[in-house]
Write a protein that binds this DNA or RNA. Structure first.
Length: 200
DNA sequence: TCTATGATCCCCT
DNA sequence: GGGGATCATAGAT
């Protein structure tokens, strides 16, 4: 399987990147323990001018990792419980990011079950960003990790995603962002049972 | 220092 | 379909 090159993440259209990440494969291999899954739901966060983005308040200790060149991980804690995994995009100085909201498990399902404390692998295993973070073993200490290395990367196995199967909607859980909450920045594979929220 | 709050999920009814 | 878990961050004191 090919890895997506750094140039994929350095482009300036974060919304396009979020859309193109559908069907790609997220792989982590901490200490040689491999888990992977096909990305079926993403959200774009478009920098300081986007009120739903953490970067809307400018550069802080938490958000500074987004100001680096793309192709690295932005991992943060939400609601005190959930490790959320984001992909930083665009070039140095522009804090764009794509949140991975849901994947379909591929490799290492037994490891994911162990990490999430589940008994059986059903469609809820990696449905929702908090569970993706947990199943793949992400932690805020992995903030800034390269996504083009051997421990963590985004793969392309040529899996085709039909344009007609790609659905668009407003982002989830960002009502505080006012009008920006209405932007069509969420992309998902229509009808896929691993997609969180509305999937029709 | 102190306090409010969230890019969520699970369990309960 | 409603509320509690649980804590780092940011902005206020």
């Amino acid at each position: 399987m090919k890895k997506l090159p750094l140039s994929f993440f350095l482009r300036d259209d974060v919304v396009l990147i979020a859309r193109e990440l559908l069907g790609k494969v997220l792989v982590t291999a901490w200490n040689g323990i491999v888990t992977s899954g096909r990305i079926v739901e993403t959200e774009a966060y478009a920098g300081e001018s986007d009120n739903a983005s953490h970067a809307s308040r400018g550069k802080t200790k938490r958000t500074e990792v987004m100001y680096n060149d793309g192709g690295i991980a932005y991992v943060y804690l939400c609601y005190g419980i959930h490790q959320m995994f984001n992909i930083v995009t665009n070039v140095k100085g522009i804090p764009h990011a794509v949140l991975i909201r849901a994947v379909v498990p591929m490799q290492g399902i037994d490891v994911m079950l162990e990490r999430t404390g589940k008994k059986v692998a059903d469609a809820t295993l990696t449905r929702g960003p908090g569970k993706v973070g947990k199943a793949f073993g992400f932690h805020t200490s992995q903030c800034g990790q390269m996504l083009t290395g051997n421990e963590t990367y985004i793969g392309d196995d040529g899996f085709p995603v039909d344009e007609n199967d790609i659905a668009v909607s407003s982002r989830i859980g960002v009502a505080y962002a006012g009008d920006h909450a209405l932007w069509d920045y969420r992309f998902y594979v229509r009808g896929n049972s691993s997609v969180s929220g509305s999937r029709s």
